[in-house]
Amino acid sequence: MAETEAIAALFKAGDCVRVREAYPIGHVRTPYYIRGKSGVIERLCGAYPNPEELAYARPGLPRQPLYRVRFRQTDVWQGYRGKGDDTVDIEIYQHWLQAQ
């Protein structure tokens, strides 16, 4: 598979998305604390070889679109002590995101 081959981006900045609530074994870059949470696409970062494959010496192709997703801290942590509009921005690969 050509290194240039990438999966088409499904989302754009401003789209509401939900992170899949899944717990596969292996090397995963989606932190536990954000699984099942809803946020908004901040930007599309490009497409990168899937690290879940790269970690096992496989090529990780086709490349996966990667987004920065913005979450409200109060939606992520119960009893968050900061301000209501504080945020956490996380890089998440497309195969972990569902349209909301």
Binding site: T30, C45, Y48, L66, R70, K83, D85, D86, V88, E91
Partner: peptide
Amino acid sequence: GDDAVVRVHDSTADM
């Protein structure tokens, strides 16, 4: 201050 938003950036992947 409370008049500013705090944004944490979790550097989880390729940025």
